[in-house]
Design a protein around this nucleic acid. Structure first.
Lengths: 224, 224
DNA sequence: GTCTATATTTGGATAGAC
DNA sequence: GTCTATCCAAATATAGAC
């Protein structure tokens, strides 16, 4: 897929030196993809924004697919690092609510505040050519498996209802979080408030606690 | 936006007569958009699939934007009708779990089984040109408001925790449901099982019921 | 109402000078 | 390592015959 050594870039930690040209190209591409999606951004756009010409990009990357593949990969890498680091900083006996709140906050923080790469990933994943998307699935898979392991850790502490299907929960949860890209705006609710509310919703549900609203009659009346 | 009378099409009920050319074009476009996304489908593709040539489409629609705008509109219309009809068929005293399960099932049913339009909407909404997306926002808005009203109906019956932010719940819920487009496959779990599980998750939460896991200490240790 | 032919634009990619 | 110039393919859209 890649002819250059682009695979090693973008894994830097925090305060970093002046980026080389390839790094600048990726940063610019990620920002533009986040802002405007995949299809409407041309190599000419990316080049112009970096102060170069389109042909020059080919010295650093083999193709547009190569660039977007890198942006996708780095996006997952960044959110994954953020969530794992935050969870690892918790005490080993952290309860389910603290775990969920921390992981949700870290995911949203990476998505909404930290970097263009993560939000670009969420935004353009469904837009890139099929073979790029398929090549990227393995990278996503690792992150999704991590979330399932997180939920299992909560369950192992005996704090989750064993009736819940944790696989299904994860499938529902991540798109729900990623949807925040469409509606979160600075100023109204803080990210920490949103994270807390969502963690409580996930753990405690929408219903009143106590012994009402437990069971309901079988669903017979609604047509298929 | 539209120069033809396309706005009146696509609102048909159930068993319908042979579709006219414009209807066939829309049906074909919706199916192709659902299968392959927006950017990779050209007017030539749509025309070829209907047995026509690209130029002929312009007799029925003013532009590609016109076609895709119609597909988006019909998609929301269909899912909205499905959910409203299902909920209206419930007894007036239906409890929160039955309401949520019914609405979730109807939404997923429209998305995954019923029509190409709804899934095309979810799939390509983020891919269409900005002005098409913005023109469509008003249509989506009506459906989203309906969901908020549904949640309020549950709350009015005293079955929801008043601490929950219903607006936030809706923002989280709908993308969570729409994500099923990426993972739901026939055969494993039935749609009804998925709907039930998600409704119970939403109402009762992930945690054990009973008086454990209620409160947790404030979040102080995790870095921002 | 559908066709052929074509105008026009745009984007990815390459060749080769500097 | 970046540039200018250009190729080639594909897409929307239009003109006008039938």
């Amino acid at each position: 897929m890649t002819t250059k050594n682009a695979r090693t870039r973008g894994a830097r930690a925090d305060g970093m030196p002046a980026p080389d040209a390839a790094q600048l190209i990726l940063d610019t591409a990620a920002r533009l993809f986040r802002e405007q999606g995949y299809a409407s951004i041309s190599l000419r756009d990316i080049a112009a924004e970096t102060g170069m010409k389109a042909a020059s990009l080919y010295h650093h990357f083999a193709s547009k697919d190569d660039i977007v593949g890198e942006v996708l990969r780095i996006g997952v890498e960044r959110v994954s690092e953020e969530v794992r680091r935050s969870v690892m900083a918790l005490p080993p006996d952290a309860d389910a609510l603290l775990l969920l709140r921390t992981a949700i906050h870290a995911h949203l923080h990476a998505l909404l505040k930290l970097q263009d790469y993560t939000s670009a990933n969420v935004r353009i994943f469904g837009q890139v050519p099929a073979h790029v998307r398929e090549a990227h699935l393995g990278v996503r898979d690792g992150y999704e498996k991590y979330w399932t392991s997180l939920l299992k850790r909560c369950a192992a502490a005996g704090q989750l209802d064993p009736a819940r299907n944790l696989h299904l929960v994860r499938l529902f949860l991540l798109p729900g979080l990623n949807g925040s890209l469409e509606w979160f705006r600075e100023g109204r609710m803080s990210l920490r408030t949103v994270s807390s509310e969502l963690a409580e919703l996930l753990l405690n549900g929408l219903g009143v606690r106590g012994d009402r609203a437990r069971e309901a009659p079988a669903l017979k009346r609604t047509a298929g």
